[in-house]
Amino acid sequence: MDMSDALAALAALSHPTRLDAFRLLVRHSPNGLPTGALVDASGLTQSTFSTHLAVLAKADLVTAEKRGRQQVQHARLDTLRQLMTFLAKDCCEGRAELCEPLIADLTCC
């Protein structure tokens, strides 16, 4: 992941609706959720939510799969992993001792 991709992902996740939707999709991985379930969870109209979904898709954080008559949305866990790795490597500058507390937090629960 390069700086441009990282900025796009961070910008997409910087809105509460988009962050909530992405977190919900991550929790429902690998099966994903129908778009309607995401709209219902957001409390927004379909058209308003689709704008948020488009921002997440443009940042490569979500992808859609057609199942019959439904669109099922999936979190792109590979993009999340790349973003987290980019941030950890960039911030820690190769110094593992700086990232050890972060890794411990991820594995504790």
Rank of each mutant, 00 (worst) to 15 (best):
P16C: 02
L10M: 14
T17Q: 08
N31L: 14
C99Y: 01
P16R: 09
L44I: 03
E65A: 14
E65T: 14
C109A: 11
V62K: 08
L53C: 04
V39Q: 08
G36I: 04
A12K: 06
D2Y: 01
A12L: 04
K58L: 08
L102R: 00
L25G: 03
Q82V: 01
V72G: 12
L102P: 12
K58Y: 03
Q70E: 15
A57P: 09
D5I: 03
D2N: 15
P16S: 02
M3V: 11
T48E: 13
H74W: 02
L24T: 15
K89V: 05
R95F: 02
Q46E: 12
C108Q: 12
V72M: 05
P101C: 00
H15K: 09
R23P: 00
H74M: 04
D20Q: 10
A12V: 04
V72R: 08
C108A: 09
L38R: 12
P30K: 11
A59V: 07
R27Y: 08
A96W: 00
F22E: 12
I103N: 01
D40Y: 07
C109S: 10
C99K: 01
F49Y: 15
A59D: 06
E93S: 08
R81G: 02
T51Q: 12
A75H: 07
V72N: 11
R67G: 00
H74F: 06
C109K: 01
G68A: 10
A8I: 00
A11F: 03
R81C: 03
P34W: 02
V55H: 11
F22I: 01
G68F: 10
A54S: 13
V26Q: 11
S47G: 05
T35H: 04
A96I: 02
A64K: 12
G94A: 08
L53S: 07
A41F: 13
L87M: 12
S29Y: 10
